[in-house]
Design a protein around this nucleic acid. Structure first.
Length: 227
DNA sequence: CCAGACGTTGTT
DNA sequence: GTCTGG
DNA sequence: CCAGACGTTGTT
DNA sequence: GTCTGG
C-alpha cells in the first residue's frame, strides 16, 4: 500500500466523513504479517492495524492468522465474533504470491495488481487484543480468502475476497443479512487482475521500499548440473 | 461437569 | 470467550 | 509469506 | 525440522 488518496476519496463519497487516524500514509511495499496495515472499519475509522488477527481471548500472539477462509469464517471460534461484529475494508495497491520451484526450492515472488490501475479492497475482519508487552490494546486484522479465478490459479489455489465499491456497504453494514454476505465470497473476474514477476527484495522483511514491486523479466538463472 | 482447542497455506 | 469432546 | 534462529552451564 | 519475528 503506497497510495491511498483515491481510496479515501471514494470512502468519503460513499459513506461521508470518517475518523482518519492515519493522515499521511507511510508508503509500504512489503506488508509482512505483524506489520501495520491500513483498514477502514465498520465503525467509520481509517486506522492502522496489526496484520494477523489475534482472538481477544488469546494470551499470546502465536495464534495470529493473516487469512480466514470465507467458507468457514462464520463458524470458527477465532473468527466468529469478528466476522459478526467487526468487518472492515483493507485497501491495497497490490499483493504478492510466491511460487516455489520444486527443483531449486527458491520462491519466485509475483506482484498482483488491478488491470484498471486502481487499488484493490479486500474483505477483512478485525479484533481488539490486549498486548501484555505493550500494555495496551491493539487492533489486529485478517483478510478473507476464496478459491482463485483463472488468472490467479496459475500461481496459487486461494486468493483474497476482493470487493468492488458497490459491495462495500453490504460488507460493512451491521444490518446485512449473513446469507447476502455469502454472495460476496467469490473470486473477482479474471480479466480484472494481472500479475508480473518481481525480484528477491520482497522476500526479506527488511526491504520495505519500492524495489519490492519492481518487475523482473529475465528468467531465474538455471541451476548448474552436478557431475 | 471440566479440559482443551481455537488457523491457513502449502506440501506431502 | 465459546464450542466440542469426553 | 520468507528469513533466520535454534542453548546451557560455567567461565571469563 | 520447526518456531519466531517482521
Amino acid at each position: 500500500m503506497f497510495e491511498d488518496s483515491s481510496f479515501k476519496e471514494d470512502v468519503f463519497k460513499k459513506f461521508g466523513s470518517f475518523r482518519d487516524t492515519i493522515g499521511v500514509l507511510e508508503k509500504q511495499y512489503n506488508i509482512a504479517p505483524t506489520l501495520n496495515i491500513a483498514i477502514y472499519t465498520n465503525t467509520k475509522v481509517y486506522t492502522y492495524s496489526h496484520f494477523g488477527l489475534i482472538p481477544s481471548w488469546a494470551s499470546a500472539g502465536s495464534s495470529m492468522q493473516i487469512n480466514a477462509r470465507s467458507e468457514s469464517v462464520y463458524e470458527k471460534s477465532s473468527f466468529k465474533e469478528a466476522y459478526r461484529q467487526r468487518r472492515c475494508l483493507v485497501p491495497l495497491n497490490g499483493y504478492f504470491e510466491w511460487v516455489k520451484d520444486p527443483v531449486s526450492k527458491k520462491s519466485q515472488a509475483h506482484f498482483i495488481v488491478s488491470t484498471s490501475g486502481d487499488y484493490f479492497v479486500f474483505a477483512g475482519i478485525y479484533e481488539s487484543w490486549y498486548d501484555n508487552k505493550l500494555k495496551k490494546t491493539i487492533l489486529t486484522c485478517a483478510v478473507l480468502t476464496t478459491e482463485p479465478n483463472n488468472t490467479i490459479a496459475e500461481l496459487h489455489n486461494r486468493m483474497p475476497v476482493i470487493l468492488e465499491s458497490d459491495k462495500w456497504d453490504l460488507w460493512l453494514n451491521n444490518r446485512s443479512d449473513f446469507r447476502e454476505l455469502n454472495t460476496l465470497f467469490i473470486p473477482i473476474n479474471s480479466d480484472k487482475i494481472r500479475y508480473f514477476r518481481v525480484g528477491e527484495a520482497v522476500n526479506s522483511v527488511k526491504n520495505r521500499g519500492e524495489e519490492c514491486i519492481k518487475e523482473v523479466t529475465e528468467t531465474v538463472p538455471r541451476q548448474g548440473t552436478l557431475f
